[in-house]
């Protein structure tokens, strides 16, 4: 369970990234966060694994205030929260297997990982993860030889290999075309259901949010302006979140193609 209690974040330059956020995220939920560019979606998500540190309030993950974490606690926190990025963030010159094994770093001692002494189970797990996102045949390809959609699948496999309790995905489909976007979202949803991993995804696209989310959180200017199940969401909800009428480019489209 993740609980935001009056969480605020002011960046060093004075920008208020988050303002008094109060949100509770239950285990197993699939949450989509929507909001305009600059609304604070990334700041919200990155607070959960402490890539950024809120400056006020308390943020509980499994009943522990992670804002107090330092050093090894932080490593434990990050080991149980996997992250997926817009730009895949793979090591382009390394092969797919090596990239996926990086998901085990938090579970592996420094010496073992530097000597490449991964446990047999870890390598097995990496391979299994690649199979789950249907990309096992590229295991020895260099990451930069893959298409964007394939790279994002590899990064999902990396997160699966990490065996996290939570998955944070920051605009995972923003660099992909509509059919590939749906493929990636479908994998995320499937993993959420099969492994019961709580998943929080930032999205720009209203139609995708509606299609995949259990619950939608709307953000504007660092504040949560909507929080509720998909069944309560209508077009006017989005107009409220965005503070303007809905446009063509707020939709990804192509749902039927996947």
């Amino acid at each position: 369970m993740i609980e935001f209690k009056d969480v605020g974040l002011v960046y060093p330059n004075g920008t208020e990234g988050l303002k008094k956020i109060n949100v509770t995220i239950n285990d197993g939920e699939f949450i989509v966060i929507v909001g305009l560019s600059g609304a604070g979606k990334s700041t919200f998500i990155r607070s959960i694994n402490r890539l950024v540190t809120p400056t006020s309030g308390s943020l509980l993950v499994d009943n522990e205030d992670i804002l107090k974490y330092r050093g090894s606690d932080m490593r434990k926190l990050r080991t149980k929260t996997g992250m997926i990025f817009q730009n895949y963030n793979l090591v382009k010159r390394s092969n797919v297997l090596k990239n996926v094994l990086a998901g085990r770093l938090g579970h592996t001692s420094t010496l073992r990982s530097i000597l490449n002494l991964y446990k047999k189970e870890d390598i097995g797990l990496a391979y299994e993860s690649l199979q789950r996102v249907n990309i096992a045949e590229k295991i020895y390809n260099r990451a930069d030889e893959l298409s964007g959609g394939q790279q994002q699948r590899v990064s999902i496999a990396r997160v699966l290999t990490q065996q996290p309790k939570y998955i944070l995905a920051d605009e995972p489909v923003a660099s992909l075309d509509p059919p590939t976007s749906h493929q990636v979202m479908t994998y995320l949803k499937k993993i959420n259901k099969e492994d019961n991993i709580t998943t929080i995804v930032n999205l720009h696209f209203i139609d995708m949010a509606m299609e995949y989310a259990d619950r939608i959180i709307g953000m504007r200017a660092g504040e949560v302006v909507f929080d509720g199940p998909v069944s309560e969401v209508s077009e006017s909800t989005f107009e409220e979140i965005y503070g303007r009428s809905i446009r063509e480019d707020d939709l990804r489209g192509g749902a039927d193609k996947s």
Binding site: N49, L51, R75, K76, R78, T79, T81, G82, M83, F85, N87, Y88, N89, L90, V91, K92, A102, G103, L105, G106, H107, S155, R158, V159, Q162
Partner: peptide, 10 residues
């Protein structure tokens, strides 16, 4: 970016 990903995975 990859450095951030590795940091994020612990």
């Amino acid at each position: 970016n990859p450095l951030e990903a590795m940091r994020a995975s612990g």
